[in-house]
Structure formats: C-alpha cells, structure tokens
Design a protein around this nucleic acid. Structure first.
Length: 293
DNA sequence: CTCGGCCTGCTC
DNA sequence: GAGCAGGCCGAG
C-alpha cells in the first residue's frame, strides 16, 4: 500500500508527536511480524521482543525508502508497512475518525504505550509488514544495504539512474519497482512517473538515451514531490497516523484509470500485466524508444 | 529474471 | 468462487 509519499507523510506526522517519549509497554499480538525467521516458539520470541523494546526512548524518526526508522536511545526500530500496514497515534480510548474501527481491533498487531499518555497502534490486515529491532549500527547498515538511491536526494543523479538501467533487458516497469535501482517507488508511482516521462512501461531499460533517462528522473522526482504535497494517495486503506486521507488519488493520470480517457490525448488508458503487476498507461502518449510504439 | 508464497478482504 | 490488491523475499 504505502509508497514513499505515504511513508514520508506518516513520518512527518509522527516525528513531532513521538520525539522524546519513552516506550512504557509493548503488546505484540502477532509475533511473526517481528520474527526474523519463522521460529518454533513465536510466543516466547514475542515476549522477549517486547521486553527488549520496553523502556527505550524514541529520539527521532527517519525514513529510508519505504522503511520507517525509529531512532531509540539504544538501537533502532525498523518498520515496513508492507501492503496494508497503518500506524495510528492516539490517546488511550480516543476514537479514530469515522469509517475506521475503534482501536485496538482484530487487525491491530502491535500497541506501544508511550509516556505522556499516547498510544501507537500498528494495524495490518494482510500482515505483510515487518517490525525489526536493530541493536547496532552494523545491523542497521546490513538491513538497508540493498537499497538504491533515494529519489528525492542529491545522489539520485541522471548518471545514477543510468547505472541502474544500463544493459538491462527487463521492462522499465520492473526496473523502477526494483528498490535497488531507485528506492521508494511502488506500483502507483511507477505508472505515474512513466506517464510523465512519456515512456511505455514495457520499454527495455537498456534502450534509453541520456535524454530519456534525464526525463525519467525528472518525472520520478516530480510525481513524488507532488504526491507529497497532497499527502499521499488514499485508494482505500491509506490513512496517516491522525486518520487523515491523502489527496493525490484525485490527480492520478493513469493508475486506476483503465478505460478512461487519457487526460492528454483522450484515448483510453490501457491496463495489462507487466512484470507481474497490474500496469496502466496510454499507448499514444507513452512510447518505447526502441520499437517506436 | 520470473514465479509463487505470504495474508485478508473486496469486487466481479 | 475466482481473481485481484498500494510489497517483498526466496526459490528455481
């Protein structure tokens, strides 16, 4: 569910609320979310995980790709929201917005009681998310080492993007979803970025000229910045920690618009499976530079 | 690199 | 009842 703009929006909301608070109690209800590997006694693992987390203080909150990194006084808590993960911050007993169940509900898998009368709830219908406690800087580096450049940082230069696409015969769709090529894009923003760049998702990465790559880089950054301004995309599950929806769904040009007219040329947006993911694009406005179609 | 698996819920 | 969903990982 959440891609870079949603995770960054969550980070911004939570950073001010959580900084300086101590974790007073930990209730981990679905141990596998915190398990590094499947383990026989998940329950004892959950208990010890909670014991280790309890008592630590949240110093700050960072983001890398789609990971949230809680900087603790000792170690870090790494949170990945998977497809349907949500974080909500509320006073105990406080009701979330209409349309959301009272918390905790059966999909609430972790509850952190924080000092100063605040609770942090992790909710995840499909349980694809991950929670990891990292004790050392080495562990943190290892956990994140496979990630490519942050698209909004200085390091994401045309040369860096070119490096990720060079000699690749995989379609652009697959390459941009690959977190090693660029970190933080998911299915929505890949489709949107390719539309902006005028490139077909089926085009091979290796076939792009410098001009195409530069255009693609600009498109990736542009769509992420705009989505950030609108606080992400809410199709159904995404809410920020204060239960606000994103607004970028109103500005999507191709994602979820199969059969509807392209906003640029009026021809219908097509949807097909590319790189095993539902993919939306305009056959007229987006071209494959190799085949010309 | 592509596929299947991990989960649950919603739509057709 | 089947197929699909905003993600990722490990197996072939």
């Amino acid at each position: 569910m959440p891609e870079l703009p949603e995770v960054e929006t969550i980070r911004r909301v939570l950073a001010r609320k959580l900084a300086g608070r101590t974790i007073l109690a930990v209730d981990l209800r679905v141990p596998k979310l915190a398990a590094s590997r499947l383990h026989r006694s998940l329950h004892s693992q959950a208990r010890s995980w909670g014991q280790r987390v309890r008592g630590r203080k949240i110093m700050g909150l960072r983001r890398r790709a789609k990971y949230l990194i809680f900087d603790l006084d000792r170690g870090k808590l790494l949170v990945h929201l998977g497809m349907t993960g949500q974080l909500f911050a509320a006073a105990p007993g406080e009701r979330p917005a209409r349309g959301l169940p009272p918390l905790p509900d059966p999909h609430t898998h972790l509850i952190l009681d924080l000092s100063g009368g605040l609770r942090l709830y992790y909710r995840d219908i499909r349980k694809f998310g991950r929670l990891r406690l990292l004790e050392t800087a080495v562990e943190e580096a290892r956990a994140l080492e496979a990630l490519g450049p942050e698209p909004l940082a200085r390091g994401f230069t045309p040369a860096k993007l070119a490096e990720g696409l060079r000699n690749k015969k995989a379609p652009l769709k697959a390459l941009l979803l690959n977190q090693k090529v660029v970190a933080g894009l998911g299915n929505i923003y890949v489709d949107e970025a390719l539309f902006r760049a005028g490139l077909a998702p089926t085009a091979r990465g290796g076939g792009l000229t410098r001009a195409h790559i530069s255009r693609l880089r600009t498109a990736v950054r542009g769509v992420l910045r705009e989505a950030l301004r609108y606080r992400g995309t809410t199709l159904s599950d995404y809410f920020d920690p204060e239960t606000r929806r994103g607004e970028f769904q109103n500005r999507l040009r191709v994602y979820g618009r199969a059969g509807q007219p392209c906003r640029q040329c009026g021809r219908p947006i097509v949807k097909a499976v590319v790189a095993q993911r539902g993919t939306h694009w305009c056959r007229h406005c987006q071209q494959d530079p190799c085949t010309g179609r």
